[in-house]
Design a protein around this nucleic acid. Sequence first.
DNA 1: CCCTTGGTTCGACGTATGTCAACATAGGCG
DNA 2: CGCCTATGTTGACATACGTCGAACCAAGGG
Lengths: 125, 125
Amino acid sequence: MSNTKALPVPDPADARAVAPCCPPLTERPFTAEEAETAARMFKALGDPVRLRLFSAVASHEGGEACVCDISDVGVSQPTVSHHLKKLKEAGLLASERRGTWVYYRVEPSVLAAMGKLLTGPSAAA
Amino acid sequence: MSNTKALPVPDPADARAVAPCCPPLTERPFTAEEAETAARMFKALGDPVRLRLFSAVASHEGGEACVCDISDVGVSQPTVSHHLKKLKEAGLLASERRGTWVYYRVEPSVLAAMGKLLTGPSAAA
DNA sequence: CCCTTGGTTCGACGTATGTCAACATAGGCG
DNA sequence: CGCCTATGTTGACATACGTCGAACCAAGGG
């Protein structure tokens, strides 16, 4: 890793807790690696169907949802599974099989990290 | 060709879909329309080159940058222009010709809107 | 054991996307 | 005026992406 000294973050403990990704994009020009990493997440949310699925999971009670409960997004069931897989590969969702059904859950740190990335430390909350 | 070179933004539908975008995606499942609108912005940031260009503009002094200053992202100059156009169509950037050079500027409300969308009202800044 | 329900994987198809080279336009300068 | 630099546009191409139908695993219930 040829990474130079990290940015003078005022609170490094808070930053490392939820931001494994990149600095705020208003802070410094992104490097190629940072851009690749961050773009992967944005791209995962760049599809209407995936965004609906992600929102459905994120807004579901308990932070997790069965596939059977969110698959009403206007596409076939294999397509739903395909998109959920993409979201999982992007690190935005986690899946767990519990008996007959499969439950998807949002990775909370991802939302905070992307929020910081966009609005800066003010999104830390 | 078919259009005169008067207006820089021939499609108002894209530009106006920025600020009053959507509720936080953890609040309620997105509707199809909300997902389309929000996904358009995420998709614009879903490319590494575009993300680097956007970050370069956002982090530049004065909040604006000349094309000649940010076009070092590893792709040809036409490709840079192409991506900047995409970002402008997505409502994330605004361009202004000042003499010989063209300057791009970030739409601040967009960052706040997307931040809210991800992390909820805590990103209101 | 088979059969029904829930979910994923596979193969294929059409379309969108990113990229470049070549050309076109805008503005400054000798 | 013509040339030269700075951006944008066009056309073409390879690749990736979203979508579906069909086939394939997993878990329960008769």
